[in-house]
Design a protein around this nucleic acid. Sequence first.
DNA 1: AAAATAGGTGACCATTTGGTCACATGTCAA
DNA 2: TTGACATGTGACCAAATGGTCACCTATTTT
Lengths: 114, 114
Amino acid sequence: MVTYFRAVDEVFRALADPTRRQILDALFERDGQTVGELADGFADSMSRFGVMKHLAVLEEANLVIGVRQGRTRTLHLNPVPIEQVANRWISKYAARFTSALVGLQQHVESREHA
Amino acid sequence: MVTYFRAVDEVFRALADPTRRQILDALFERDGQTVGELADGFADSMSRFGVMKHLAVLEEANLVIGVRQGRTRTLHLNPVPIEQVANRWISKYAARFTSALVGLQQHVESREHA
DNA sequence: AAAATAGGTGACCATTTGGTCACATGTCAA
DNA sequence: TTGACATGTGACCAAATGGTCACCTATTTT
């Protein structure tokens, strides 16, 4: 089952952290930022080192690709793994049961407010 | 931005663990299993308590819905949150850049074999 | 060549996570 | 109503995670 491939695992793991999703967003807004530029954008919430650790996870998952250029490194969003996970994994679930359970979902949402 | 809603967060977080994705798979294969049945399926890798903790996370994220029936509780897959994440979040990334970067992705894959 | 700039490493720390178990509760059957 | 069965709770533990910092390396710039 495709669910357990290491690559899939790393993508899910990488996407689990909100800060990492914010980093993807930042690169979505402006692709090709340097490590420093990116870190500046998160300066209020995190140090450069924190950003770098998250980048390492994102690169491990191939969601971000870094390109050295002299003493800088530019970071590039790579949507391919996301697309693959969507196609191979998510679509399996998304298509099925939906109509049958939407009612139940709404019921639950109405009870949980908190 | 939709990326930071609590619900989205919980879904990503819940999907991050491979065991939890396996639980979803198990329910995909046979929906409506009881806690005990599900736990039996994971007996070689985990105790019933471990399974229950994962179930709590999945229910928190609304990916699984539990229904009490006497002294048992049946668990039901709910694909709605997955579909929402796919529609609201993933599609944003999946559509863009793809063709431009597929080459780069393949280049990276050919270098990483490990 | 020296100084400034951009990025990377390793050690370290607090918190969260994944997991176990002893025990408690609720429900069905005899 | 007593026992067996199905599930839940809380305390607890080891490992992973998210984060910081002091320091190192490599590349410009002057």
